[in-house]
Design a binder for these strands. Structure first.
Lengths: 361, 361
DNA sequence: CTGAAAGCGCTTACAG
DNA sequence: CTGAAAGCGCTTACAG
């Protein structure tokens, strides 16, 4: 490994001078600059960033802690973080908790892995990361999981109830509102909904959005049109069967995830009901399967890339603010819980209802 | 940030002694050990790993270069690397090329991103990673992409034609053989195959496996039973329609990926042919969608986790061999191209053919 | 415009 | 069993 001293000797200058030409931290005459650059290029010298980091107390590295990288949302969030970080010259140290393998579906009980997380955070801090981004596997409250960290941290796809913590996730209520409104704009007024597990916040928020869209358009909420699911395909199938056998069956269904929408498609096929001609369907999540269904599913896409990107932006800003000892982020008047918007992906499962009597002007 | 010197002062010993009790590198009396540990615990001191790395010239970090983390195979490979690396005390620096965003479907032309990769490799080396794992987005030949690296490197989900390079991927031929054999064991003898793009190596290998299974069981290859697809659902649908309308239609189909198998399911539904009772179907890849289909698809699962794990094992072994200046890996008599086996995931799409006349003893 | 020197926070022969 | 000292490869006031 070739060092700055050796370059200095070869170029007949001091190590300080070499450092200055590399970093542009002092005015060096064009001649010596050239002499130095020539030997650097000749021997293909690259400064040792570990040594540099030790001196400047900054690694230009951010730590990412993912709860489980195999969950569908995570790679795209990492992609977003990665792109912005790279543009700012930051590297990424990845720590994957492998939560599913370790504690299965107990992920809601954060106490089961606080020790693990606190070890990892400690480790990251020892390795001098400039900041940390935590990526949840499920959007939920993880208050208390991480405490007393000496570097800036931002939470993505999860949140805490601590006001000064920065959390970035997406707006379930609004997304459900948009999905329902899209069906209404397509002249549907009898709109069924198949929910996820009622105990989940996602489900509650999406239900609110669904009802608000109905309300805003003067459509009475018909409890018969609401079926309780559990996010699984089978429940979507069963719920659709019930909805479609109602005497006054809905002409459209909003399924709170794509997987259950797969069950709706199956049920409709069995009943000989054509999607989208006789039944319109909107899913949620824009999972891989939504594109494989036939018809291809119209669904709400989660702003995963954007969540990652925004997280990286804010974190890097916090790092820079800290460096220049500005006021910490939570004392600015900015809102610390950031909800990004989902976007509707129009594919093949929605059709304008031909019944003109419902037409909205 | 608290340093080893401060700990030394507080415990009334030298920094050397503190270092020794932390690392167990010398016999220290129980009394001083306790005194030192007490202050370490009291102030929650954690040594600065950057400083340590600079001194010992080892970071216990491996660099992962992924071609695209959003491709389905990659997260699971990272998971495998991660688990083994963590067990060995190694950290991971992640570099994601975002190949799809950058060059779209030109990924086969590695010359389009050699400069990018060589920058990243250089960067990783400056950051003193102990080794590098490259994770392909598609299993293909990437000879020449990376050259002259001073740290050990292993390739996963791709390979080079350079004998000394270590590559870990999976055995397409054998997997197709197993899939076809499974159908034969279920008493099928008229087995259709829907291929991917014929130009792809995967497809050629899988075709070989299919034919070898037929041959080994004395079944004549019937060209009518082979339909050329392109990995997309629509082609699977069309191919299945043709196969199923043959006068002597196959009783089973091997689809070279899960997506086309989705098309087969659709075609069968349209024709009123029941899967698996009247038609057995095996897919390939074990993608998310294969579990959402109805019936749930029996398919070959790629050993992604295992590829990652094996990659990490070999890389860390190379790092240790290098440290103790043993012979480099490629001079051992071990094989440097490692093909792991796929495993059959039995779900609901295969049924034993009731026609006893075919029964294999 | 350039260089000598100190120092970032550790580890490790070496001496005692 | 313990400590003084050198050094890993950089950067950065400071002096000239």
């Amino acid at each position: 490994m070739i060092t700055i001293k050796e370059i200095a000797k070869m170029a007949n200058v001091s190590a300080a001078t070499v450092s200055h030409v590399i970093n542009g931290t002092a005015k060096i005459s064009p001649e010596t600059t050239k002499r130095v650059m020539d030997v650097i290029n000749k021997v293909n010298y690259k400064p040792n960033s570990i040594a540099k980091s030790l001196k400047i107390k900054r690694t230009n590295t951010i730590g990412i802690i993912t709860e489980d990288i195999t969950v569908f949302n995570t790679p795209e969030i990492i992609n977003g973080i990665n792109e912005h970080a790279e543009n700012c010259g930051y590297h990424i140290i990845l720590n994957n908790l492998r939560l599913y393998k370790r504690i299965g579906n107990n992920y809601k009980d954060t106490s089961k892995f606080t020790d693990l997380v606190s070890d990892i955070v400690g480790d990251l801090v020892n390795r001098q990361v400039d900041g940390i981004i935590y990526v949840g596997a499920h959007c939920r409250d993880i208050t208390g999981l991480i405490e007393n960290v000496s570097v800036p941290i931002v939470y993505t796809y999860c949140y805490t109830n601590n006001e000064s913590d920065i959390s970035i996730y997406y707006d379930d209520e609004l997304a459900a509102y948009e999905a329902t409104k899209y069906l209404i704009m397509n002249n549907h007024r009898k709109i069924g909904v198949i929910t996820g597990s009622l105990s989940s916040i996602q489900c509650q928020e999406r239900l609110k959005g669904y009802q608000r869209a109905l309300f805003d358009n003067n459509i009475l909420f018909n409890p018969q049109y609401m079926k309780i699911g559990n996010w699984e395909l089978e429940q979507g199938y069963l719920a659709a069967k019930e909805l479609l056998s109602l005497s006054d069956a809905p002409t459209a269904i909003f399924s709170m995830n794509d997987v259950m929408a797969g069950g709706v498609i199956e049920a409709a096929k069995e009943l000989g009901i054509s999607i989208p001609k006789e039944l319109s369907l909107v899913g949620f999540d824009n999972r891989e399967c939504s594109y494989s269904y036939s018809p291809k599913l119209t669904t709400m896409s989660l702003p995963l890339y954007e969540i990652g990107k925004k997280g990286a932006e804010i974190l890097i800003k916090m790092i820079n603010d800290k460096k220049s000892s500005k006021a910490p982020h939570d004392q600015n008047n900015t809102e610390n819980k950031i909800k990004l918007n989902c976007v509707l992906i129009q594919r093949e499962s929605v059709f304008e209802n031909p019944d003109k009597s419902f037409k909205i002007s």
